[in-house]
């Protein structure tokens, strides 16, 4: 049975856009360049997280090799700039398409299996790519990596300062949020959710489960590729370590903590994991302990992530305050209807 929510599809997009408008105003508050730099890094992660959210939140597939797809985008940008003099704006679609193509190549054999077997396959892919990049000789810069010399141009002028690049990243976060929202609220999104809820039932309804799962992986690759190009042009030096197992685990952690089904989830996860060590002055060991505790707490108490849990809590509080009866089940996955 399909239950219609009283809220319009747009209502699930508005909170994310409102948060992004607020984030776009951050430079006006005069933050330090350290904060701005960390915010750019967080924004770049959030773009990749939207792809992971489509894969995990909508399709129910968790990838532990997502940083490798980010790496494909980053290396595409660096190699195009070095060998062909192709700059940022052209590298963006090319990096994105190549990452999607790699996702398709990896997806075809990997998605013949499911569940934790797929997680292991994607993890292995991440490690394999790192080995390939490390041993790629002059073409990939081997373990030392590649430099990126071309500047990012912003309305025809080099965006040498952090603020213009911050706006570029925020714009891509907004595009990613809107793209995710379009996917979630399309018939394709509904198909993915049907697969997530019950693969066999979806197949019995005539849905080509394998093809759609590969499709979701390819879509997540598109986001990862954009994130990689943004990262390469921000760091200006990339090396295989940046795309190995740990960064992939961190991306999965971010999306699970923030929540993969709401549009605010990737934003919350990206910001939390990037800024928590900074705000609490935690060293990496303490951070990992804290993330582990957060993850356990989220899995046990807030299975749809922090933001969905927050909304549920607010809703319950509102009901208690007005003393009204509980409303029908309102979706927590950013959709306007639920099965």
């Amino acid at each position: 049975m399909i239950m219609k929510s009283s809220s319009s599809p747009l209502a699930s997009l508005l909170p994310a856009l409102a948060v992004l408008v607020v984030l776009a105003l951050v430079p006006a508050l005069g933050p330090s360049n350290r904060i701005l730099s960390l915010a750019i890094s967080a924004g770049i992660n959030i773009v990749a997280l939207y792809g992971l959210a489509v894969l995990f939140g909508q399709t129910g597939i968790l990838s532990m090799g997502h940083a490798a797809l980010v790496g494909v985008g980053a290396y595409t940008a660096a190699i195009l700039a070095r060998d062909l003099g192709i700059g940022f704006w052209v590298a963006l679609p090319l990096g994105s398409l190549l990452a999607a193509a790699v996702a398709a190549i990896v997806g075809v054999p990997s998605l013949r299996v499911s569940g934790h077997h797929f997680v292991i396959m994607t993890f292995a892919f991440g490690q394999l790519l790192s080995i390939v990049l490390t041993n790629g000789g002059a073409f990939t810069g081997a373990a030392t990596g590649l430099d990126l010399q071309l500047p990012v141009t912003w309305f025809g002028r080099p965006a040498g300062d952090l603020v213009p690049y911050y706006f570029i990243v925020i714009a891509f976060v907004a595009i990613s949020a809107v793209a995710s929202w379009l996917i979630i609220n399309s018939s394709y999104g509904r198909t993915l959710r049907a697969i997530r809820e019950n693969e066999k039932l979806a197949a019995s309804l005539g849905i080509n489960v394998g093809r759609h799962k590969i499709g979701a992986f390819v879509v997540s690759g598109l986001f990862a590729g954009v994130s990689g190009v943004l990262l390469a042009y921000f760091f200006r030096h990339i090396s295989p370590n940046q795309f190995s197992a740990f960064p992939s685990i961190y991306l999965a952690l971010m999306v699970m903590i923030g929540g993969a089904r709401l549009l605010l989830g990737p934003i919350a996860g990206g910001i939390l994991v990037s800024f928590l060590p900074e705000m609490l002055n935690l060293d990496p060991v303490e951070s990992r302990i804290l993330y582990g505790i957060c993850l356990i707490a989220v899995i046990l108490l807030l299975p749809n992530g922090l933001i969905a849990g927050l909304f549920d809590g607010l809703r319950a509080l509102g009901r208690r305050l007005v003393g009204s009866a509980p409303r029908p089940n309102v979706p927590t996955d950013g959709t306007s209807e639920t099965a």
């Binding site: 360049n33 350290r34 730099s37 921000f234 760091f235 940046q242 060590p277 951070s287």
Partner: peptide, 20 residues
């Protein structure tokens, strides 16, 4: 500035030292 063995933190620390 502690880079926490993290390249994003190293870059943020350098931006802070150079620009701020």
């Amino acid at each position: 500035r502690d880079d926490r063995t993290d390249i994003a933190t190293a870059i943020a620390a350098t931006q802070e030292l150079v620009r701020d």
